[in-house]
Computed example of a mutant assay.
Amino acid sequence: MATADLLVLVFNVTVYHVFSYHFAHSFLSYTAMCTLFNYLNSISLCMSVWFTVLFTFDRFVVICWEKFKVIYCRVRTAAVVITAATVLICSENIPLFFAYGPERLIDHVPWGCRTKLSFFMSPAGEAYSWLHSVLVPWLPFALILLFNCLTVRRILVANRSRRAVRGYRSESQSDPKMESRKKSIILLFAVSGSFILLWLTASVSFLSTRITNTAHYRGDYAAPAYLATETGYMLMYLSSFTNTCIYATTQAKFRGELKKVVKSPWNCILLFVRRMGN
């Protein structure tokens, strides 16, 4: 999930919104490269969304599904699930290669990208557009809310049973098991809650502009629909940043791995210097 969020920051923010804007006549402006980066932008966003769903499902399995946890919670299973999700996401976004055409020809070289009205106005293109909007993020919204409700219900029931077995009702007495469950709830709601809140503006804006047919602003950057859409994009990209921050502040193992990544180049340099000295 952290890797997918990093890809969003690299492709969607850095390459698409920074490099493409400030280096308008670089190789990024070729139609082929522009189409490729639009494809990479879409799959990175989809992976960020669906890996968040998979994270929520993982917590649900660990807490609520004891029998299935023995089979599912393995390194090999995680690798298979992540690989399968990535392949499906990459396959689902292949039609985007046919959705863009060149803005102009310079010395017989296609430059820029613009959407093909023939693609999006066709029944297949319109069906794909609506399907994509359901898969990202309305279906993930529903699945995250479902898994969260089931997980919280299971934790509350387990806590009541544990208090009854231990024979006390005082909340002030510490219980390591209950404290662990409480931390799981906090992490679960921090990740999934921030995702839903930060994606909600973009999702509602997309539906409202498609239903009211106000998706084309014709250069009016003060139009409410344009402002709502761009604000939704900004919050949507911010979601990729907050997930990593949440992990960095709440997960000791994640912080440890992050420190290893930061220290590894310096350790290699130090090792090289020592060998040179010997």
Rank of each mutant, 00 (worst) to 15 (best):
S172C: 03
G219V: 06
K183W: 07
T151E: 08
L9N: 03
L139H: 00
D107V: 06
N213I: 12
Y233C: 02
C113G: 14
S264L: 03
L150M: 13
K116A: 03
Q173V: 07
I89G: 02
D175F: 13
R114M: 08
C90N: 04
F120K: 06
E126W: 11
F206N: 14
N12S: 14
Y233R: 02
N93G: 01
I185Q: 14
S44V: 02
S42G: 11
C73T: 05
R275N: 09
Y237A: 13
S170A: 10
S192G: 07
T212A: 09
L105Y: 08
G112Y: 13
S122R: 13
I71E: 11
S118E: 15
P224L: 04
R76M: 12
F189Q: 05
R160S: 00
L139I: 05
V273R: 05
V191I: 15
Y16L: 10
T209D: 12
A4E: 07
T249P: 01
F206L: 09
S48M: 12
V165Y: 00
L131T: 06
L40G: 05
L235F: 07
K67N: 09
S192T: 15
V70S: 09
P102T: 10
T35N: 13
E92Q: 11
F120R: 08
I71Y: 09
E103K: 15
L105P: 09
E171V: 01
S194T: 15
A222K: 08
F254I: 11
R210D: 07
S192H: 04
F241H: 04
L145N: 09
L145H: 00
I106T: 03
M33E: 00
W111T: 02
N148V: 12
E230V: 09
L96I: 14
I106L: 14
V262Y: 15
I82N: 01
Y72M: 07
L235V: 01
Y233I: 03
L117S: 15
F147Q: 00
F195E: 02
W50Y: 01
R114C: 07
P176I: 10
R210V: 03
S161I: 00
Y21E: 10
W65F: 06
V87K: 00
A78T: 15
K69F: 02
V53D: 03
I94G: 00
I186N: 04
G101M: 10
E92S: 00
T86M: 05
A32C: 08
G277Q: 08
V18S: 07
R181G: 09
P123A: 06
S174N: 11
L28C: 04
I63Q: 12
I211V: 15
H132N: 11
M121W: 15
T242C: 10
R274K: 03
R104D: 11
K260N: 14
N159P: 01
N148A: 11
W130N: 13
S194R: 12
T31D: 09
S240G: 12
F19C: 10
A79H: 06
W50C: 06
E92H: 04
L143Q: 01
S264T: 02
N148S: 10
V134N: 10
A223W: 10
